[in-house]
């Protein structure tokens, strides 16, 4: 427990501490100039973010088919969503499923991979590059490759499984019971971007803490449990929040994979897919806008819950960013 205390009391020296920082000369820049410099961004956010958001909020209360002017229908879209649209619930269930399974797995796998990559004494940058490379493959290409790899007839995965004596390997993307697991594996394969953050976090854990742990006779597991894990919680927290936001918008991999096979049972039909099909196949822009706003609310609530609970489990050496 002394270790935990050591971790809790650990605080790296702040920038400029202990030395006299040179006095900064305040630059006097006219506001108009600042505004002019910022204007491209301001213009962009108004035109491409604020206006579409306001428009889609209005449209979520309308029936709008792209041809006729939007017709005000009040809360009808939301009533339909919750009480009449079975695809809404199916898409939401699938999305919650993939979030609940993939986020913890991605966190664990990214951390494990990063930890493994801290071990090599020589050629570590080569290993890091190799593990990072898959995340640079475009999502569409990676998804197509995975539909090949998991092909039940000639895919190498099933050939391998058959070679080791598994008689009836799964049909993966062609079987509603297995298709989501195929997507999970695809997600884990492209873990490189998250892994890099964990790697940076792991390399940032002060060696002095491990030395202290070692002096106190801590095992490798105890070092991990009481030093590494607490020091990594800000990274875990970050990837958890971004993971939740990302998984609620899960679309490309599922869209590509389900396009390659018959996803008749809609096992790979996620919330974003439902929005896409509603907007661009059924051309129900009003209802699609309502779906998008509900997605925003769901994501916001989940994020707020995580932010609220982070005080209990996230350890910031310099204090919380969200006091």
């Amino acid at each position: 427990m002394q270790l935990t205390k050591a971790v809790a009391s650990f605080s790296p020296r702040k920038r400029g501490e202990g030395a006299l920082a040179p006095a900064r000369k305040k630059l006097k820049v006219p506001y108009l100039f600042i505004f002019l410099c910022m204007s491209p961004w301001i213009f962009g956010i108004i035109i491409f973010t604020a206006y579409p958001m306001v428009a889609s909020f209005y449209q979520s209360f309308t029936k709008f088919n792209l041809i006729d002017s939007p017709e005000w229908v009040g809360l009808e879209n939301f009533h339909r969503m919750f009480f009449e649209d079975s695809d809404f619930w199916l898409a939401l269930r699938n999305t919650v499923w993939i979030s609940a399974i993939s986020i913890p797995l991605r966190i664990a796998f990214a951390m494990f991979t990063a930890w493994v990559l801290t071990k090599p004494k020589r050629g570590s940058s080569i290993y890091r590059t190799i593990f990072f490379l898959p995340s640079m493959v475009p999502t569409v290409a990676a998804s197509m490759v995975f539909t090949y790899i998991f092909n039940p007839a000639y895919g190498p995965i099933n050939r391998g499984l058959e070679a080791i004596g598994i008689k009836d390997p799964p049909f993966w993307f062609m079987d509603p019971k297995w298709s989501k697991w195929g997507l999970i594996l695809l997600g884990l394969w492209g873990i490189g971007d998250t892994m890099i953050i964990y790697l940076a976090g792991l390399l940032d854990v002060p060696k002095s803490l491990y030395e202290a742990a070692s002096l106190e006779g801590a095992t490798q597991w105890q070092s991990f449990r009481y030093v590494t894990l607490p020091m990594m919680t800000p990274v875990i927290f970050f990837s958890f929040v971004t993971g939740v936001i990302g998984s609620f918008q899960y679309f490309t991999q599922a869209y590509v994979a389900s396009g390659q096979v018959n996803d008749y049972s809609h096992a790979m039909y996620f919330y974003a897919t439902h929005i896409y099909f509603t907007a661009f196949r059924a051309y129900e822009m009003g209802y699609a806008s309502a779906l998008a706003w509900v997605l925003l609310v769901i994501t916001l609530v989940c994020t707020l819950i995580i932010l609220k609970t982070q005080k209990r489990w996230v350890h910031y050496p310099n204090g919380s960013l969200f006091k």
Partner: peptide, 22 residues
């Protein structure tokens, strides 16, 4: 008027589900 021929996609899904025994 079913948007982009929604009825065809729905029927095709039913056929696929039926042939897979689901």
């Amino acid at each position: 008027n079913t948007g982009e021929h929604q009825e065809e996609a729905l029927l095709q899904n039913l056929m696929a589900s039926w042939q897979a025994g689901d």
